[in-house]
Design a protein around this nucleic acid. Structure first.
Lengths: 235, 235
DNA sequence: ACAACTAAATGAACGGCGTTCACGATAATT
DNA sequence: AATTATCGTGAACGCCGTTCATTTAGTTGT
């Protein structure tokens, strides 16, 4: 008796040790740098052992990334209650920008890498990622703005609005991650571009374009996340 | 005599045969599916031979992708002369959207994949890609719009404008490539979103928001490109 | 025409990767 | 104490990109 609980706990702890070892490699050096042999070395087990805890390498890394991102996005939820819908909209965007810029390797795996070939039979199965929750929350914020009559008369599709704001911020972030090191483009500061994009999109859709609120300070405190460290991006 | 020219020609032909074999694999199945052994099989040479023509796999695939994209972007250049700056701006965006949607694997490698870790010593060396030319052309079009006084008084930085329009379109395209298969998001049609984004950004910056011009038809003829075929995206 | 030289192409190997599986070791249950 | 389930392992498999000494083919010089 009781021992089955202990077993389960030990199993969960082992799982976490694997994830922590993988996280250190992934966060600082990216997906390719995460090697089952390296992770195994790190926790002093043999590579095959990892397969007792994860289906394969991809499942392991994705578990890690989804955990981390869900944790980051969860930190902004509390402030939602005490803000107007429009403030929520802006806060959400700013949080998303910082998340992408601070954790480029996480961002890359989640939003810049197709999970599977579109025709793959496993395709349906793997589509239950928790990131959906964040999107759902964002969508509901947009819907509130629509319901409050904040947008132009011809803009009633909250889904289209949400997807467009998402795409705009994603464009700035992902282009920065992929091409930000190419100095032939003479990039403007990435946070300036992100804010410019954000305001352009929101003001372009508002019925009464608002004065830009003092959100999104360029120097914003880093958001807490497990084992948060500076990341560099790898090819 | 003359034989050195023939040698050079034969060398170039061999190079093209390698690129063509690689292109077929890459366009339909993505980067990971391009294997030096498969390419070598395809052209009936041994894998090591490829190294006489390309530094490594990455150089081979990038050569192929850059060729193809440069060819696509070159097709829009002729129409530039007979259009107003604003029309050029829109045409450019539309061409870019179609290029990304029709050749997702090309797009992914060029704009969604960091070339090298940012600190890498080889970093500087590899930064002479021809895509820069397209960006330069686009930038000059934006500059024309600025000079013509089309934009708001506070929008004078052509570079910021170009990078923002690019990022907006890139956001729609890349999010479609990476997450377009995830139907939990209830995506609106990708071309609708791209046009919505395009108009929102341009109109948001114009001094006098324009009526939307009849560009960007949803059913646009495919642009010609070497060995153009439908692509699927792989993880 | 033959030898000397140069460039092209190769087979075999290296080290690394994700993954599998039959087999011991260990702990829990009966 | 015997049985059963779980955990962990070593060794292998088949792939990958890449290297290199060696062989082959073709050009050049005499």
């Amino acid at each position: 008796m009781g021992s089955t609980e202990r077993r389960a706990r030990e199993r969960a702890e082992m799982r976490e040790r694997i994830l922590d070892a993988a996280r250190n490699l992934f966060a600082s050096e990216g997906y390719e740098a995460v090697t089952l042999r390296k992770v195994a070395d790190c926790i002093e087990y043999c590579p095959a052992t990892i397969y007792k805890y994860f289906e394969d390498k991809d499942a392991m890394v994705r578990a890690l990334v989804e955990d981390d991102i869900a944790m980051v996005m969860a930190t902004i939820q509390p402030s939602m209650a005490e803000q107007t819908p429009l403030e929520c909209l802006r806060s959400f965007g700013c949080a998303y920008i910082e998340m992408g810029l601070e954790r480029p390797n996480h961002y890359r795996l989640m939003f810049m890498t197709p999970l599977l070939p579109v025709d793959d039979p496993l395709f349906r199965k793997k589509r239950a990622d928790p990131q959906t929750d964040s999107y759902g929350l964002f969508l509901s914020v947009v819907q509130e703005c629509v319901d409050a009559g904040l947008f132009r008369a011809d803009i009633t599709d909250a889904c289209l609005v949400a997807q467009t704001i998402w795409a705009g911020l994603h464009g700035v972030i992902s282009l920065h991650i992929a091409c930000g090191g190419n100095d032939t483009y003479d990039w403007r500061p990435v946070r300036d571009r992100a804010i410019f994009m954000h305001d352009l999109l929101i003001n372009g859709m508002l019925r009464v374009p608002a004065i830009v609120l003092p959100t999104c300070p360029s120097t914003r405190p880093a958001m807490p996340v497990a084992a948060s460290l500076p990341e560099s991006v790898t090819p």
